[in-house]
Nucleic acid binder design. Structure first.
Lengths: 250, 250
DNA sequence: CGTGTACTTGAGTGGGCTCAAGCAGGGTGG
DNA sequence: CCACCCTGCTTGAGCCCACTCAAGTACACG
């Protein structure tokens, strides 16, 4: 088998002093003096696309901050199917649950090349114990994740809503900024999010492309993407009507 | 005029001194002196079954602690279908997200008679600001909710898993303690959780009852319930027979 | 005893699944 | 440069689970 997805390298220690995210990041409330005094061995890791950051079966040993790229959190059900539970991007905290539990809830995999700061668990616990303001920030992050999860649940995976509508909603969520660009995941990933077979995803995407609502656009700054007709997508995403509207093209 | 689902009454001010939950509750880290000094107007509310605690469209104004009963958090999709997102029970905190956002994420409805302590938002904010230990506890609660949501997502709503298996999993989650009793929700609620039509739920439940895996048991201490053959249910819940042939086994 | 709500049951349909084969593109090595 | 694979995507055929619509039954409650 090919290189077992364990492809990551260590850029050495993170330089918190020059980190452009320090003011917006989790650690915003930690002073530089504290950081220095702490002498924390924070590693700066680079994971390439599809690399596994940690596995569900591993014992929790660290918390990660995303500095660049996109991460997916997945679970495998008894029959081995992958299910994507959430995305994490710049400024998000990965594996926060391991502060309270030894067991990891998910497997984390890089969707694009990703840069992470790794903070060993013991240090992280001491960190938050000594910096109350950090706790509130983490609580906010956690609530944010919870809101995402609820959205995901109620909008994306309801089988009561036709797959095409859900796909449109997902594409809207994958929009890059305010542009007409949308992240182009793999067919399998789309399926793992929506809980539908990859073949169905392929058919639906092609249907959208036939209607010129979606067009393949080359590789952008962050991976492959689509160019989309946002108004049209929005229209489809709101289609809650149960009346059949099979646009048969003769 | 009929009281439109707004059926709740106020038992007056909560008496935190005699509250049996004080040591395990959110406020465990708040001293009695603080509580007294704070002079917080914490109302003690009783909601009857099916009463709406707050609505998604309401502006967030308070946080609630569940002292007794079970609450469901629901969302309505564009076509008006109800979707149950999570349950909350004794010791859980309701509407915590409104600490950070004015908008409510869900509508909260009592599934059984429920007793809640209502803490006005402004007071709650001050509360957590003054009690750092409380923040950590809330963070833990939040992470717990997140774990529940992830479980829900990956085990209960995957349309890739047959409805019968998902129903069995749900029934196992509704188990009362370590007994052979299981909470008996309404057919519609089962459907709103699993994302399937109520007719299908009815058929599946009857199928289980024909196989004597499930039996209607009268009203228990907390509402209607079933008596279930737990080993048999467990067996069904692990049924991965729909696994795909081409799927590479991890 | 009627009326409403919750649940049951049947018939027919269709969306999305499975299985299977074909295609397209990007490496890699000769 | 082509031949080869390998992986990801496409496309078709047939099937089945769960849906919809619709009518019937059980039970609670005034």
């Amino acid at each position: 088998m090919t290189t077992l997805n364990r492809t990551h390298k260590c850029n050495g220690r993170s330089n918190c002093f020059t980190c452009s995210l320090r003011s917006t990041m989790v650690c915003a409330d930690v002073s530089l003096e504290d950081l220095l005094a702490f002498h924390t061995p924070i590693d700066d890791l680079v994971f390439e696309k599809d690399a596994i950051i940690y596995n569900m079966t591993d014992r929790a040993s660290a918390v990660y901050c995303v500095r660049h790229g996109v991460i997916k959190l997945v679970r495998y059900d008894v029959s081995g199917n992958q299910r994507i539970v959430r995305f994490l991007k710049k400024n998000d905290v990965v594996a926060l649950e391991s502060v309270f539990s030894e067991e990891q809830q998910h497997t984390a995999i890089a969707l694009t090349e990703a840069h992470l700061c790794r903070i060993p668990m013991a240090h992280f616990r001491q960190f938050i114990a000594e910096h109350p303001a950090l706790q509130l920030r983490l609580l906010e992050k956690s609530q944010e994740a919870l809101r995402d999860a609820d959205n995901w649940l109620s909008e994306l995976v309801s089988n009561t809503v036709p797959a095409k509508v859900r796909l449109a909603r997902l594409l809207l969520q994958l929009r890059i900024g305010e542009s007409d660009r949308v992240h182009r995941l793999s067919i399998a990933d789309f399926g793992a999010i929506l809980g539908i077979a990859p073949e169905t995803v392929s058919r639906l995407l092609n249907e959208l492309m036939d209607g010129e609502i979606l067009m393949k656009a080359g590789r952008g700054p962050n991976g492959r993407n689509y160019r989309a007709d946002m108004p049209a997508l929005t229209l489809i995403s709101q289609d809650g009507c149960r009346a059949r509207q099979t646009r048969k093209t003769y």
